[in-house]
Design a protein around this nucleic acid. Structure first.
Lengths: 181, 181
DNA sequence: AGATCTATCGTTAGAAT
DNA sequence: TATTCTAACGATAGATC
């Protein structure tokens, strides 16, 4: 907390934040990548805080030009999806859920296969593909999904299916709430 | 730019920003509402800038406890959706689009009807409902959709359908790109 | 490639409207 | 109820490791 002498400028290790134009894309691919990575983190933090402080649910989906898919959602929606996926029997006991499941299965399978197709095309274009990188940085948030499209076909290809289910089931949960459970 | 005398504290109109806990929700409903409104704007601005600077597409969906649905997406995805909705003939000429459309129509109708049901329940709970308010604040962004759930059944009930279609069609557009259109 | 540092720029809590 | 003002707090560009 001592007074910093005027020669402190000599010790500066950085020029600090400078302005960058926000009305057009950064020209250098490398800069875009760095900025995207940094700001994505900031965005996750912001919306995570918002969801906690204001008690809202959310889903964010980001599609990068290279075909990478970033999905991020609030714990509530995540939780509902996990229950559905990990405990199918839970659904079997719920009539409305069964109906919803039945109506969605068919076209979700189709959508998933489309994702696989995109992946194959991307693989043809560029032979190398990067590995899954999990951000898992959020402080109070439990779940971040951050998965390259290319991994959807190899491991758990249900991410998009999960995501759509979240919307559906959140609505259903709210209806049950309003109906007095 | 003159030096401010020490009595300037007497002229202060605000204590400035204070810390608020971000690990739990604000207790007062009114505070939550104000914070939600302010931070939502900030969030839109942030992700809009991100999409321009880093050339990415995105969709954000926020569901408030009161049942309000906020959707926000990048112009590209918006554009694709608009084309689909306003120019159905465009789809008729594209085989894959036709297939996708057919597979989605059925359950999207079902999902939409669920939304209507939620709306009716909300209407029973609280008799009054607010009007559509458009934010349309973003500087460089063209499209903000900000529609209460209650309006989905009265006017254009296709918002959620549009939204799901955006994902679908963005994928399709990318596939066409990769296939050499 | 990602983590850290820090000066600078951006966001927002509280008050007032 | 949303918006404006402004001090205070937070995010991040560029440098560095």
């Amino acid at each position: 907390m001592e007074n910093v002498p005027s020669n402190s400028r000599a010790n500066k290790r950085s020029k600090g934040r400078q302005r960058i134009p926000t009305d057009r894309r950064r020209e250098r691919e490398e800069d875009r990548q760095v900025t995207f990575s940094k700001r994505r983190s900031g965005l996750y933090k912001k919306i995570s805080e918002l969801s906690i402080v204001c008690a809202i649910d959310f889903i964010v989906m980001i599609l990068s030009p290279s075909g990478k898919l970033f999905s991020f959602s609030s714990p509530n929606m995540e939780l509902i999806a996990m229950k559905l996926l990990n405990n199918k029997k839970l659904n079997s006991n719920m009539d409305t859920n069964c109906l919803m499941e039945a109506s969605f299965r068919e076209n979700l399978a189709r959508l998933t296969s489309q994702l696989v197709e995109v992946e194959n095309l991307l693989d043809q274009e560029k032979e190398r593909e990067k590995k899954i990188e999990k951000m898992v940085k959020a402080r109070k948030m439990k779940s971040i999904i951050d998965t390259p499209v290319s991994d959807l076909s190899e491991g758990d290809a249900q991410m998009l299916e999960d995501w759509l289910k979240k919307i559906q089931n959140d609505l259903h949960a709210r209806m049950n709430q309003l109906n007095g459970n």
